[in-house]
Every structure is written in structure tokens, then in C-alpha cells.
Design a protein around this nucleic acid. Structure first.
Lengths: 234, 234
DNA sequence: CGTGTTTTTTTGTTGCAACAAAAATGTGAA
DNA sequence: TTCACATTTTTGTTGCAACAAAAAAACACG
């Protein structure tokens, strides 16, 4: 590894302590599906929920709106958005481009230790699925993906990808257990690990892209079924 | 122009009026290079500059930090960052993936009107270069690119791309006039227009990617020369 | 002249209240 | 019930002040 000639490295302090805390707390709740699409979030509600004043609560909500994890349904009303098919398609396109890139870049930093880590994570996914712990399965799936992407060494890229996951995560946690049960990822994950072992960038990209595409088809199908059911039940 | 079939379209109101204004105002100033890398920005300074209170000024600064257009150099100090080569490389990789995607998607929406618009913009670029109005040239160059990307019909994609431009823009406005003078973009832009006319997605992507790569090489070279000069002058 | 130390000034964060505007609720007529 | 309108409640925005902490300035010593 080369030594960077001028790595000034901007200080990674953590100002805005309460606001940052509120943001991460709410982000976590959203990813875990604590709020259903359509749920209204107000500054004062968040402020009470997290026992902070309105200022950090406002900071958190504003930032989540910027991320697209929350959305204005009126001038003074932010809600958890209903993900439309067009949104899902746009996000999927971006995921293919960005996560494909991250996967391709990851192979050069792959080591035996990282391979082992990935094997372990995949075992956790399989185990969780066997025991019908669907939530854990999805969680470990995320860890698996980001363990690979982290190898790219591109922090900003990782940040953008994480925001994309946040956007779909908030809306698609309602898809249990059909979505998790499909095990669509296992084969693609095996292929990804194999590609890392052989340091084959193109294969790694292909494996991740397949995984994303398979997931997209699943989501689309399940979501369409739901809509159908909701429609006919009216 | 087609009518969108199911555009429920979350209300596009504009809350946070002063904060939004402050953000866009500062963004504009940064893209135009009003602040040199290393310049310190404080809440109260921005608040005075824009004649608003501290709250919207704080909102604007925080958001620019999230964008990566500003950076903490200490717990209580935000500055315009010096772009390191590794940063530039990461951003360029992401630009290739995302702007390549946008360009490929743009062909299906290309019409005669948009072709005319692009021709006009290219003429403006050339004209500005002829008259050594380098700033205008760069500005119209941005318009040219985003006129294409807008055709993709993906608003969030556009937003992310714009943030990438903001990050490099703030630091590389100091590269006048060498950078603008090179006219590296003309051939690539012609190729892009041609691709849109023939609705050739692959060609459009290739043209844009070439443009980005050429620009990256230029920036890298000029920036390296500068560093060399600064180093030897010490 | 640097260099470490102390003092002064500046700065971001946080909480809060006032206000206008929007959302929710209530009311009544068809 | 359904719809339009009036009333009440809720809500985001904005400005501001107190405070601790950090940055800058002043200073002293070598």
C-alpha cells in the first residue's frame, strides 16, 4: 500500500451532538420499519420521543427529508412516503450503477479475512432464514453487502448507497415474510464470494447486479400482489 | 411532451423558506468560486451576509456540510475543503457511473427541440471561449450536461449528480483560465448530440464518459502543476 | 525570534417563545 | 351521508439568548 503524500485528513469530529443522535436514532427506526408509510412525523413528537428540544428534532427531520426518507405531503406535514413503482425503479437503477461499481472495486482489497467474514455473514443469513427470523436475515443481508462495498475504499460512495437503502428500507419492511423467505440472494452471494476469492472484478459486479435485479423483481411482484389485494378488498 | 400516467407527485411545496434561500444562495456562491479553499465560514457571518437570523444560516451550513461542499477542520470550524486527488478520483468514478447512466437513459426522451437546445448551448460555450469569458463557458457547459441528464426523467439521480458537481466546483474554480481554455469538451459534446439524434444509448454514454475522463485528466494535470509550483516556491 | 502559556474573543449548540399558516375538527345545510 | 364553510388546534419557521467549548490573541520566557 502506498503512502499518501499529503493526507491532511479532515478532522472527523462530531459536532451537533444531539441533532446527530436524533438523526441516527430516527434513521434506525425507519430502516427497522417502526413507522408505516403514510405515518405523520412532527417536530414536537420527535422531540418528545427522544427527550430533546425542538432544535435537534427539527435538524433530524430536515435531514431525513433531504435523504428522501421522509417526504412533505403538505406545507407543514412530513410523512413516511409510499414508495411508488417509479421511485423503486429509479433507486434500483442507481443501485445497479453504484453498487456495481463498489463491487468491482472491492476485489483488489479482498483478503482472506474478508472472505471469512463474508462466509460467516452468509451463514448467519441462512441460519436466520431457517429459523424464520426474517428481520435478522434482512439485517445480515445488509451487513453482507456493505462488508463488500467497504472494500472499495470510497467513503462518499458508501454514504450515497446507504441513503438508497434507507429509502427502500423504510417502505419495504412491511413485506414480511414473503420477501425474506425467497432466499433469492444465496446463489448470488456465493458467486460474489467466489469472485472476491479470484479477484475477478467483472464477476463481482455481475453477482451484485444479479442480486439487486432479483430483489427488485421480488419486491415488484409482492408489492403488486399487495396492491391488487388492497384494491379488491375495497 | 407526454402526460405522466400516475404522477401522484408528493406536493412540491417549499417550506423552510429562508433556510432554503440561504442554502441555494451559498451553493451558488460556492459553485462560482466566491470562497477559496481553506476559507472559514461561520453561522453569524453567513447570517450577516444574507441578512437572516442564525437559524436559517445554520441550516444552510449544516446542509452544505452534509453535501460535502463544506467540511469541519475542527469541532467549531467549517471551511471550504481543499480537494485531494483521492477525493477527485472518487467523485470522478461516481460521475462516470451516474452520468453515464443518465446519458444512456436520455436518448429515449430526446426530441428535436432538445437537440436544438443542445446545439444552442454548445454555440454559447464556443462563443464564450472565443471571447475568453471562461466563467460563462464553464457555466454553459454545466447547462449542457444537465440538459441531457434531465431527459432521464429521474429526479433523485439528478440531485445526486448535482451534489457531485458542487463538490468539485467549489475547489476547481481556481483553475482559470487553463482549464476552460482547453476546449476538451467540444468533440465529446458533438458526439453526444449525434448519439441523441440517432437515439443510440451506448454512444451517448460513451460520449459523456469520455468528456468526464478528459476533464479529469485536465484537472489532474493542472492541479499537479500548481502543487509543483507552490511547492518549489516555498 | 520562536515557543509554550494564559487571557480574551468568537463560535456552535441547545432550548424556547412568538407568530403566521396549515391541518384538524366541528357545524349545518342539502 | 356528503359537502362546504367556519372555528379551533396544531405545526413549522424564525429569531434570540445563555452557555460551554474552542479558536484567536496576547503575553511571557527562553
Amino acid at each position: 500500500m502506498e503512502i499518501e503524500p499529503e493526507d491532511e485528513g479532515y478532522h472527523r469530529h462530531q459536532p451537533n451532538r444531539l441533532g446527530e443522535m436524533a438523526y441516527h436514532n430516527m434513521k434506525e427506526r425507519l430502516i427497522r420499519g417502526a413507522f408505516s408509510p403514510g405515518a405523520k412525523l412532527t417536530i414536537r413528537a420527535v422531540s418528545d420521543m427522544l427527550h430533546v428540544s425542538t432544535t435537534p428534532a427539527r435538524d433530524a427531520i430536515n435531514r431525513l427529508v433531504i435523504d428522501g426518507a421522509l417526504v412533505y405531503s403538505g406545507p407543514k406535514t412530513v410523512i413516511v412516503p409510499h414508495l411508488r413503482l417509479s421511485d423503486l425503479e429509479e433507486i434500483t437503477q442507481m443501485r445497479l450503477a453504484l453498487e456495481g461499481l463498489a463491487a468491482a472495486l472491492s476485489v483488489k482489497a479482498a483478503s482472506e479475512a474478508t472472505i471469512e467474514e463474508l462466509e460467516l455473514l452468509q451463514a448467519k443469513i441462512d441460519g436466520a432464514l431457517d429459523e424464520r427470523r426474517y428481520f435478522d436475515a434482512l439485517w445480515h443481508n445488509k451487513e453482507f453487502h456493505f462488508a463488500i462495498y467497504r472494500l472499495s475504499g470510497m467513503p462518499y460512495l458508501l454514504q450515497v448507497i446507504e441513503t438508497l437503502w434507507l429509502r427502500v428500507g423504510a417502505s419495504f419492511n412491511g413485506l414480511y415474510p414473503e420477501f425474506s423467505e425467497t432466499r433469492h440472494g444465496a446463489r448470488n452471494h456465493r458467486a460474489a464470494i467466489e469472485a472476491l476469492v479470484e479477484k475477478d472484478a467483472a464477476a463481482a459486479r455481475a453477482a451484485i447486479e444479479n442480486d439487486i435485479r432479483d430483489g427488485f423483481r421480488q419486491m415488484k411482484k409482492i408489492s403488486a400482489d399487495r396492491d391488487q389485494r388492497n384494491l379488491s378488498r375495497r
